Simulated assay, not measured.
Amino acid sequence: MTLTALLPTLRASIPDPLAAAAWPAGTRATTTDVVVGGVSLHGLALLCGTPCLHTADRPEPSVVLVTTVLDTTTTHDGLRVLVLDAGFASPGGATWPELRLLGRASVARLVPTLVCDPDKVPLAEVALPADVGAPDLLGVPCAGDPRRALGGRARGSLR
C-alpha cells in the first residue's frame, strides 16, 4: 500500500508511484499526468482524441493506451463500474492495475472499480479514486500490439 493510497490528499502534491517494469523506460508520473518519452498522455488525448495509443521507442512494454470514461454505474452489490471507449483484454494485454487518471489530481479515496469495454464486457477490477467518472481520461500500459484489440477504433498513434 502506498502513502497516496493511505492519505489520498497527498495526490494533490505528490504523484502516485508507477510500477517501473509495467511502463516504457523513462516514464514519469506527475500529479495530473503521465509522461512517456517526453510526451504528455493528457496532451496526446487532447490532440488526437480517444481511444489513442502512444508507442515509445523502447523495449517492451512500449505501448500506452489512452481512453475516456464513457459512463459510470454501480452494481446491485455496490461495485463501481466504468465503461471505457476502448478495451484490451487479450492475453499479455493491458496492465490494468497500473490504470492512471490523467488531466487532474484526485484526492478521493480508492475504491474497487470494475473496468469494462464499450460493449460493457468486464476487463478488470482495479482500485481507482471514487470520483473518477465520465469524461475523465485514463492511461494504461500495454504489452504486445493493442491496435488489433481496438478493432481500428484508435484515432491517433504517435511514435
Rank of each mutant, 00 (worst) to 15 (best):
T4R: 10
T4L: 03
A5T: 12
L6D: 11
P8V: 03
P8Q: 07
P8Y: 06
L10I: 11
S13C: 13
P15C: 13
P15M: 13
P17N: 04
P17R: 05
L18S: 02
L18P: 04
A19I: 01
A21M: 00
W23N: 10
P24C: 11
P24I: 08
G26M: 03
T27E: 06
R28Q: 12
T31N: 13
V34W: 09
V35A: 06
V35P: 10
V35G: 07
G38L: 07
V39S: 14
S40K: 14
L41G: 10
G43V: 13
L44S: 13
L44P: 12
A45E: 11
L47P: 03
L47A: 15
C48E: 14
T50V: 00
P51F: 00
C52T: 13
L53V: 10
H54M: 12
A56Y: 08
P59R: 09
E60R: 12
E60I: 00
P61G: 05
V63Q: 14
V64R: 05
L65A: 03
V66F: 00
T68N: 00
V69S: 06
D71V: 04
T74F: 01
T74C: 00
T74I: 00
T75Y: 01
H76K: 10
H76V: 10
D77W: 04
V81Y: 03
V81D: 05
V83Q: 14
V83A: 07
L84I: 01
L84T: 03
A86V: 01
G87Y: 01
G87D: 11
F88K: 00
A89Q: 14
S90K: 09
G92N: 11
T95A: 05
W96P: 08
L99S: 02
L101I: 08
L102V: 09
L102I: 04
R104M: 02
A105S: 15
S106A: 10
V107R: 05
A108G: 09
P112K: 02
C116S: 14
D117F: 04
D117P: 13
P118M: 10
D119I: 04
K120C: 11
V121C: 15
V121F: 14
V121I: 15
P122M: 05
P122Y: 09
L123S: 08
A124F: 06
A124D: 15
A124P: 14
E125S: 12
V126P: 07
V126Q: 03
V126W: 03
A127F: 04
A127D: 12
A127N: 04
P129M: 05
V132G: 06
G133T: 14
V140C: 04
P141R: 03
C142P: 08
A149E: 12
G151W: 09
G151V: 07
G151N: 12
R153G: 07
A154E: 15
A154H: 13
A154F: 01
G156K: 10
G156E: 10
R159G: 11
